[in-house]
């Protein structure tokens, strides 16, 4: 039992179990990946059986899906959405574009490595990942949550200066409110 719970307390174990089985997703439909989300959520692949369900606002969401390349302009919105989400929160990044820029690696207005701007829990590779891969990614996230290793929000808060510096480097006209997340 000690092993299975990964040295979590009972309360923490129960909380993580419920977090794992109830993921409200905020699908930020950037890039090409937005089209895979409806397929994942509707009848054919039915993500709701895993407790995955769409949330309409960042306040209610647990998982932020970044579904592809991010223009610097979009990155600004992504950061705002991410900071409005409440702890514990998770980020799943889709496709090669979020890992290393993909086919937009030398584009003048997209970012290459998402990890520099917000922390990412799970990457799903492919261009574009199919719904099976997306669900596999979700399961990976669920395992991570169950082990108590998904600490996205804390990582962001602890390394805030580093993330902010990177964000400021690409977003030149930084006019954003400071959120108390």
């Amino acid at each position: 039992m000690e092993n299975k719970r990964n040295s979590q307390t009972i309360a923490e174990y129960i909380k993580n179990w419920s977090r794992k089985h109830s993921l409200f997703i905020m699908a930020y439909g950037t890039g090409c990946g937005a089209i895979e989300i409806p397929a994942t959520l509707t009848s054919r692949y039915d993500a709701e059986r895993l407790g995955i369900r769409g949330a309409a606002t960042p306040r209610q969401a647990d998982v932020l899906l970044i579904t592809g390349y991010l223009a610097t302009k979009t990155l600004k919105r992504v950061i705002r959405v991410y900071e409005q989400m409440q702890d514990p929160k998770y980020v799943i990044a889709f496709g090669s574009c979020t890992i290393n820029g993909g086919m937009y690696y030398d584009s003048y207005n997209t970012i290459n490595v998402l990890e520099k701007y917000i922390p990412v829990d799970v990457y799903i590779n492919g261009c574009m990942p199919r719904p099976e891969a997306v669900i596999a990614g979700f399961q990976q996230l669920q395992d991570k949550i169950a082990r108590g290793e998904a600490d996205n929000g804390t990582r962001y808060k602890e390394n805030l200066e580093w993330y902010r510096a990177n964000q400021h480097r690409v977003i030149k006209n930084w006019r954003m409110p400071d959120y108390n997340w």
Binding site: S22, E48, Q86
Partner: peptide, 21 residues
């Protein structure tokens, strides 16, 4: 679809109550 379990709302509730912020 297969759908969630019928206890899904309870799980959601526990999850919501164990949000940290």
């Amino acid at each position: 679809r297969v759908g969630p379990t019928i206890w899904q709302n309870f799980i959601d509730l526990v999850k919501l109550q164990s949000k940290k912020t």
